[in-house]
Design a binder for these strands. Structure first.
Lengths: 153, 153
DNA sequence: CGTCGATAGATGCAAATGCATGTATATCGG
DNA sequence: CCGATATACATGCATTTGCATCTATCGACG
């Protein structure tokens, strides 16, 4: 908790990451426990969510892979499972014979919206009381900056 | 990126969490790819790290579970694996017949220190260039506050 | 064009994970 | 002290994951 003034840059970076990671674990633990994830794993919801945010609807499977913390093969099978459950559909990429495009089905949209609502409510109940609005905005800014810098190179 | 001024509290909280989560995924993806985690999964290192931070050396298995994003049964088997590899040792809790205490062996200490060094270097290379020292301190403060608030209730 | 290295995705297989449950101990109310 | 309920950890089993590898296509270059 104490903010030491004479910390080495390396140590500061490590402690910052450590703290970010622990916060993520703590929040995620609560979210997973909630009723929103009864029949859908967190990674599965994450895929539905990412697809729901995609403007064109279709998304390449390898681009999906950048958003989710899963190996390529695991994502391949996860999408396969979602397809079997009728939540997404796949089609060969028109401009690249190796690629596959994925998008939500109507059922997938419905489920994402339904779970999303509960999920957002749970998040608000966890994060809302923990930080002021100004602090949340600052946290949003800093994590976005970090993500952009890390993804860039 | 744009900081909308007229956001609902619920939406702000959701976007903050979303951003925090994505940043964590982006950083973790890079860290996992590094050579530091060749023979040790991230969760396994996490356990070694947590044990290395424990003042008394011994830590109850259920307390370990609070730090790691794993089910109780998975942690039980993870510790079992680490024990088989000679990195930790277990003993029955003296004050609670149900409990188990865990601590690092000498080999576990060595491995944690070795991997920890590489790990810290990787983190510094990722986070250091992304945020100023002041920003890192602020991010550290906010995530610590968030973690404490979430863990509290 | 034909070859070669790189990339996208799928698949076999062993390992890791979670859920449900089992066993043992602790704690609480009479 | 006794029974009921809760907690800590382990285990059986089905599912999920990752690594290594395979197939097919892409892109570059002679």
């Amino acid at each position: 908790m104490s903010t030491k003034t004479s910390e080495s840059p390396v140590r500061l970076a490590a402690e910052t990451w450590e703290s970010l990671f622990r916060a993520q674990v703590a929040v995620m633990r609560r979210l997973q426990a909630g009723p929103a994830f009864k029949g859908l794993a967190i990674n599965e919801y994450d895929v539905l969510f990412t697809l729901s945010r995609c403007p064109s609807g279709w998304l390449r499977q390898n681009e999906l892979n950048d958003h989710v913390l899963l190996s390529q093969s695991s994502l391949s099978r996860l999408v396969e499972r979602l397809e079997k459950r009728g939540l997404v559909e796949r089609m060969p990429a028109p401009d690249d014979g190796r690629g596959v495009l994925v998008r939500l089905t109507e059922a997938g949209w419905e489920l994402q919206k339904q779970i999303g609502r509960e999920h957002v409510r749970d998040i608000a109940n966890l994060v809302g009381p923990a930080l002021t609005a100004a602090e949340q905005r600052e946290l949003l800014r800093l994590t976005e900056k970090l993500r952009a810098a890390v993804a860039a190179r």
